[in-house]
Structure formats: structure tokens, C-alpha cells
């Protein structure tokens, strides 16, 4: 156990020392600032226009708040930006080290390949958690500071496969829902990290590892958007990675969420086991 902690400590030292580790945090900070500015000027008017086209709005119109901004900004950030950062970090951790020769230097030490991969995966999971909650905190904080808080109204078209109408979550429930969404999204990111490690175990360069991982992820995401392939959805890992969106339904579908978590756990075990097996059998020739 102390060996695994030591491995984690050294992986953390390496991760923390790399400048590129901190780039995603800076990018996310900049993206959130732009989102706040854009919502301030344009998005709320656009949303009002859409709502007025479908509903007759009466009473206090406090749905244009920080929670609304957060929920709607999470889609592009969690579905596109974070997977890119996670795939790059995973690629650098194994294939990048193979490319540099440092993996070779680690493997001639008395440490098992399995421990090395699992240590990297554990740290990647912490990194994914940090990225998810960092951006969530920025979005919620920036949103509330700029637009206040209140009940969360979401357009179903964005979260419920094109269904019409809107969902409403009372203000008191929103922080819990967002926390849950963050946890589910983080779990999804760890599955992507395991996939990236699996691909890293097969290739020798970091670029090849993250390009292949992202190609696979976006290819599956594209397949998922084709209505003719809806029979395939339940089998795609991406479907379950996106399950965090259901945290913004009026009634939380815990059953579906749990099924997705089980699916994600299965994908995680398969990807990680395959990564460990391939890595243990692999000849390090570079």
C-alpha cells in the first residue's frame, strides 16, 4: 500500500511540474469568463425570445440566473473541452513517457507495470475530478455573482434528446443536482482516461494516443447523434458518459442514472484491465 502511495506521490510530482497540466485550468477560466460575458449580453435575450415563442410568460421572471447559465454552459464544456484535456493528459502520462524514454527508466526499477498503470490512472481520476469541479465552481460562482440565483429552468431540447418544453428545479435543489452532475461527469471522464491509457499502451507517441482517443470519442458521439442508430445508444459508452445531463430533469431519473453508472463501471473495468494486460505483455523497444 505504501508503494502505491509512493507511486502516486511521484506521479503527482511529475504532473504538477508539467506546465501543460495547468493549461486546462487557465483555458477553463478564460472560457467561463467569455461565457459570463456572452450570457450577459446575448444569451438571456435569445432564451427569452425562445420561451416567448412557446409560452406565455407571467409573474416573476427569475429564471435568467447563474444556475441557468451554468447548466447550459456545462454541455459544451463537459462534452467537448474536458474530454480533450483528459485525453491529452492520459496520452502524455504513458505514451508521452514512452516517447521521452522516461517510462523505460521507470520500468527498470523494482515496480510492477500494473502498479505503474494503476498509479497513473488513480492520479488521472483525481485530475479529472479537479477539472470537473474547478469549472463547475467557476461557472456557479461566476453565474451567481453576475446573475444571482433562483430556480433552474432548462430547455428540454438541450438535455432531453430534442423533447419540447422546459424543466424546472427549485432553487434549493439546484446545488445538489449540480454536485451530482459533476460526480457523474467525473466518472465518465475516468472511463475516457482508462480508454486513453489502453490506447497509450498500444502506441509509442503521445500525439498518436490522444488523437486516437479523441477520434474514437467524437466518432462515437457522432454515431449517437444519428437517429437511425438509436438502437445502438445503450451500448455506447458515450451515452452513459452524458448521463449527467439527466440531473437537470424535473424529476431525477435515479434508475436510469444508476444503470448508466453500472455501465460506466463495466467499461472502466474492461478498458483498465485491457490496458494493464497489454502493458504487461508489451515489449518496450523505444
Amino acid at each position: 500500500m505504501s508503494g502505491l502511495f509512493a507511486l502516486l506521490r511521484f506521479e503527482w510530482t511529475k504532473l504538477r511540474g508539467r506546465r501543460i497540466t495547468w493549461v486546462p485550468f487557465a483555458v477553463l477560466g478564460a472560457v467561463v469568463a467569455v461565457i459570463v460575458a456572452v450570457f450577459h449580453r446575448l444569451e438571456f435575450q435569445h432564451m427569452l425570445h425562445l420561451l416567448r415563442a412557446s409560452f406565455q410568460l407571467t409573474g416573476k421572471q427569475d429564471f435568467m440566473n447563474g444556475y441557468y447559465m451554468t447548466a447550459h454552459a456545462m454541455n459544451p464544456i463537459f462534452n467537448a473541452l474536458l474530454p480533450i484535456f483528459i485525453a491529452v493528459a492520459s496520452g502524455l502520462m504513458v505514451a508521452g513517457e514512452t516517447e521521452q524514454g522516461t517510462l523505460r527508466a521507470c520500468l527498470i526499477r523494482p515496480v510492477t507495470r500494473r502498479a505503474l498503470i494503476l498509479g497513473k490512472f488513480a492520479l488521472l481520476s483525481v485530475y479529472a475530478l479537479a477539472l470537473c469541479f474547478f469549472v463547475l465552481a467557476l461557472l456557479v460562482g461566476g453565474g451567481i455573482l453576475s446573475f444571482g440565483h433562483g430556480p433552474l429552468y432548462t430547455l428540454n431540447i438541450l438535455f432531453q434528446n430534442g423533447q419540447e418544453g422546459a424543466s424546472m428545479i427549485p432553487a434549493a435543489e439546484v446545488p445538489g443536482r449540480m454536485f451530482l452532475a459533476g460526480l457523474i461527469a467525473t466518472f465518465g471522464m475516468t472511463v475516457l482516461a482508462a480508454l486513453a491509457l489502453l490506447i497509450s499502451a498500444l502506441v509509442d507517441t503521445a500525439a498518436m494516443a490522444y488523437v486516437l482517443t479523441l477520434s474514437l470519442y467524437f466518432a462515437v458521439l457522432t454515431l449517437r447523434s444519428l437517429p437511425l442508430l438509436d438502437w445502438l445508444y445503450p451500448y455506447l459508452f458515450v451515452t452513459h458518459m452524458l448521463r449527467w445531463q439527466q440531473c437537470f430533469y424535473s424529476h431525477l431519473p435515479m434508475g436510469q442514472i444508476l444503470v448508466s453508472l453500472v455501465h460506466l463501471a463495466c467499461y472502466l473495468v474492461v478498458f483498465l484491465s485491457a490496458a494493464v494486460l497489454l502493458f504487461e505483455e508489451r515489449d518496450i523497444k523505444t
Binding site: 509512493a6 507511486l7 506521490r9 511521484f10 510530482t13 511529475k14 511540474g17 508539467r18 506546465r19 521521452q100 524514454g101 522516461t102 523505460r104 527508466a105 521507470c106 527498470i108 526499477r109 523494482p110 515496480v111
Partner: peptide, 25 residues
């Protein structure tokens, strides 16, 4: 041992590299 050429984490100090590799042992 080293094979081909010694490899290190260029962004870390020499001492930190030694701590990492010795730590693995």
C-alpha cells in the same frame, strides 16, 4: 541501469529526478 541513453523529466530538477527514480526503488 540505463539503456540507449539516460532519460529524465526535463522540466524537473536533477535532484527531483533522482528522488523520483530512487523513490521507485
Amino acid at each position: 541501469a540505463f539503456v540507449e541513453a539516460p532519460s529524465f523529466y526535463g522540466y524537473l530538477s536533477g535532484r527531483k529526478n533522482l528522488e523520483i527514480f530512487a523513490g521507485l526503488s
